[in-house]
Amino acid sequence: MTTAETGEKGSAGGAEEGAGPEGAGAPPAPVKSAVRTVVLLEHFAARPGLHSLADIQHDLSLPKSSLYMLLRTLVNLGWVETDATGTRYGIGVRALLVGSSYIDGDEVVAAARPTLDRLSDDTTETIHLARMDGTSVVYLATRQSQHYLRPFTRVGRRLPVHSTALGKALLATHTDEEVRRLLPRRLEAVTQHTVTDREQLVEELALVREQGYAVDREENTLGLRCFGVAVPYRTPARDAVSCSVPVARLTPGHEQVIKAALFEARDRLSVVTRRM
């Protein structure tokens, strides 16, 4: 995207044209228009629906004229959609196509499909495969519960790493100091059960390492308990598998079945992802 498309001049143009040759020492300067495009798309991805130009400008603190030109360019390219009035904007269908291509081309997702299917059959509950991304986990694949009472899930959903069994299983593959560098001292309370003290979470991660699995005790969704294990094809792990079950349906016997099935799934995935 050129500076003319976003109304940028001067410093933005220098950032795009003044980057030194590869191997010159300092990393190339970021392209301002590209950075703004990514920030805008991620803003829409985190806030479903349509939003006014004024609201977007307020949230992102971008120059209004530049933001408008960027939005119109992305609308023309299909990355952003607008309503009939042309005054409200949201994520476009092109973003879905790119997101789907990421899932379709991921070797771990492809290799995990038979294991996820078997885990779903063994537990009859909702199954997730997720990847750690900063302080979040992102769903890469799901298998819906066979029961009428079941949680709502979708591929691409992003959840806090500290409030999920998936995230805690992944955090446990990091050292305590790495966890402290990654997370703030006070953590977001998603529900009244969420662990919001980082040091308390660090203590819990020691137990996760010892027992080999993590538990979300209604910390992300009320009425739902989740069990998660990391897939150790790399260290620290970046992917994890979990099983979610409504508390009303969770008996001690069913919990043991879920844990055993998760350990078996982890072992199978460790084999099939060994060379990835």
Rank of each mutant, 00 (worst) to 15 (best):
T273S: 14
V215R: 11
A12K: 03
L140F: 06
E42T: 05
L149A: 04
F227H: 00
P151S: 06
V229S: 03
L207V: 14
E255H: 13
A165S: 14
H128R: 09
A172F: 05
E218T: 11
G90R: 07
H128M: 02
L50W: 10
G90Y: 01
H128L: 06
A248M: 12
A189D: 09
E81C: 00
E125I: 05
D55F: 12
R143T: 05
V39Q: 15
P236V: 01
H193A: 09
A19H: 09
H51T: 09
R198Y: 01
S33M: 02
A169D: 04
A111W: 02
V35Y: 00
R158V: 14
E204Q: 15
V138S: 09
D104P: 09
T3D: 14
S61Y: 06
Y102L: 14
R266Y: 10
S33F: 04
V179K: 00
L187N: 07
H58L: 06
P21N: 04
V208Y: 08
L201D: 05
R113E: 15
S242C: 11
D176W: 01
A237N: 04
S136M: 05
D122K: 02
L119T: 01
R158L: 09
A141P: 01
R198E: 13
I103D: 15
Q192M: 08
V272P: 07
Q256P: 04
G10D: 06
A45F: 08
E177I: 10
L170E: 00
T196R: 07
V208L: 01
A84F: 05
R143H: 07
A15R: 13
G228L: 07
V245R: 03
E22M: 01
L62K: 00
E219C: 07
D267G: 02
E125K: 03
R275D: 15
K168W: 11
T126Y: 06
K259D: 05
G86F: 07
D267A: 14
A12I: 03
S270E: 15
H128V: 06
T221A: 05
L224F: 03
H147L: 13
A230L: 10
T273R: 08
A237R: 00
L170Q: 05
L222W: 06
D216A: 10
G92A: 04
R274S: 11
